[in-house]
Simulated scan of single mutants.
Amino acid sequence: MAYDYLMLYYVYEKPQLFDYPIQSVRKHILNVFAMGFLFFLWIVAYTIYKTTTQIKNNKMDRMEIENTLKDSQLNALKGQINPHFMFNCLNNIRGLILENPEKSREMITRLSEMLRYSLAKNEITTIVLEEEIEMVENFIEISKIQMEERLNFTSQIDKNTLKLQIPPMIIQMLIENAVKHGIAKLKGGGQISLQTTLKHNNLTILVVNTGILTIDKDSTQLGIKNIEKRLHLIYGEKASFKLEEIKNTVIAKIIIPIL
């Protein structure tokens, strides 16, 4: 009986003696849950970090592969230019050797200057437009040696465009195409005009020549395809190339974004 009164006394009068062990257990349990929750958060954070890092690395690897492939494709396309241009010029020189040796020598000199230029720029994706214009002028002089008065060339070059970057030989190929498929087929010859303008952060290159838009049966259209592929590889959908005929005049128009 005395024991019962003693227990009642401790329960009601000294409850802290019984609460202490319970609070200690609760505290330990809460600590275990807290540690577990923190460990769970660490696992989640680590998983997110590793996943993000892996995605980033995969993206960088994919971009590196794409850039390497793009460079390889561009180099292959640039490799098509020299043989194509050489073939046309050597044919012209062959026709002049017996007829006019002096002009043929001048033609060879200008051709060597152009080849030196193209070799120097072979590993470059873009050049300043001013350098390309010099290339075009050499090509025009070579063509005039053969066609004489049948070829009339004019240009309107916006001074603000001279230092802008463009793919090498892209204008020269347009001019070459105009001479070969336009002026050369006209008995009385014709005119080629080159114009560059800068508007709304876009460079517009316009080549207009007398003639009609025809595609020879045996033509590979190498120059046109080359231009289209290089523009797409460098600028994607931001650049455009259009070739059309309006009233016996062929118009080639290239629009390039200023990067």
Rank of each mutant, 00 (worst) to 15 (best):
Q16W: 10
Q16F: 10
L17Y: 11
L17W: 07
F18M: 12
D19F: 06
D19N: 01
Y20P: 00
Y20S: 09
Y20V: 02
I22V: 14
I22P: 02
Q23L: 05
S24Q: 09
S24I: 03
V25Q: 04
V25T: 07
V25P: 03
V25R: 01
K27V: 08
H28Q: 11
I29M: 07
I29V: 12
L30Q: 13
L30V: 11
N31D: 04
N31P: 01
V32Y: 12
F33L: 14
F33V: 11
F33H: 12
A34Q: 12
M35Y: 15
M35E: 15
G36M: 04
F37L: 14
L38Y: 10
L38D: 12
L38H: 07
F39Q: 08
F39T: 15
L41I: 15
W42Y: 14
I43C: 02
V44Y: 13
A45P: 03
Y46H: 04
Y46C: 05
Y46T: 03
T47M: 09
T47F: 12
K50F: 10
K50W: 10
K50T: 12
T53Q: 11
I55A: 09
I55N: 12
K56S: 05
N57T: 09
N58F: 01
N58V: 00
K59E: 13
K59Y: 11
M60G: 00
D61M: 03
D61L: 04
R62M: 10
R62P: 00
M63S: 13
M63V: 04
E64I: 00
E64Q: 01
N67W: 05
T68N: 07
L69S: 10
L69H: 06
D71C: 04
S72N: 10
S72F: 08
Q73I: 01
Q73T: 00
L74H: 03
L74K: 06
N75L: 11
A76N: 08
A76H: 07
A76Q: 08
L77G: 06
L77Y: 04
L77M: 07
L77V: 02
L77Q: 06
K78C: 01
K78M: 13
K78R: 11
G79Q: 08
G79R: 05
I81A: 00
N82I: 11
P83D: 15
P83V: 11
F85K: 01
F85D: 00
F85Y: 13
M86T: 15
M86R: 13
F87N: 10
F87G: 04
N88R: 02
C89D: 09
L90A: 03
L90I: 15
N91S: 15
N92V: 06
N92Y: 06
I93M: 10
I93V: 15
G95N: 15
G95K: 14
